[in-house]
Amino acid sequence: MNIPVDLTLSLVLLSVLFSFGSSRLPGLIKVIAFQGVVVSIVPLIIGHDMTAGGILFTLATLMIRGIVIPFCIYFAIKKVAIRREVEPIVGYHASVLAGLGLIVAAMVVSHRFNAPSISASVLLLPTAIALLVAGMFLLMARRNAIAMVLGYIMMENGIYLVGTTFSVRALHIVEFGILLDVLAGVMIMAVILQNIKQTFDDVDTALLRTLKE
């Protein structure tokens, strides 16, 4: 048991529920930003011996996941000034209920795995699984293109959480490369979002259905 880590991770789980329930895009972006911050401070408190480089890298992650990426998306919204609804395919109440079910399922499933480095905290693996599946859920259950990008970011947060326990072995330069890729990906998505808005006057992905067999 590791109380501070588990407390922090329970905040992440809460953010999943909030994101499922929020109907407005600015709210959803705030939840994702909060999640990014919390996920990036996990390595600081999980109890690895931190080198100066490690702390620097964690701070860089915090900056990018918690501030730069959400701001990218936020400016994309500002510039295109779209109707700020997430246009759900699955309703909000059903989504929150699904979120609860997902967290319970993630807890049950993760007990069946055993890996020494994961057992540092009870909640680490369940949270990571929950984030991955929740990101997938947002990608599928929202028609708004911005909400879909946010779902992708949530998935990335989940993968980061699994990967972070191995930061002892992984080299910071490599981790930083991954982070830069994610950042560049989100920026390109933001540019495409602006173009979609200019071309279709909306970011509802139901409009993006011309190409099919």
């Binding site: 990008v149 992708y152 990967g163 495409i192």
Partner: peptide, 28 residues
């Protein structure tokens, strides 16, 4: 382009997870 970037990014995120799982297999 939207389809390409989103589908491939999400797909490749799976590969990142797979790579992390391989490091777990080293750990175990």
């Amino acid at each position: 382009t939207w389809k390409y970037v989103l589908i491939c990014s999400v797909g490749i995120a799976m590969a990142l997870l797979g790579s992390v799982l391989i490091t777990i297999s080293m750990d175990v």
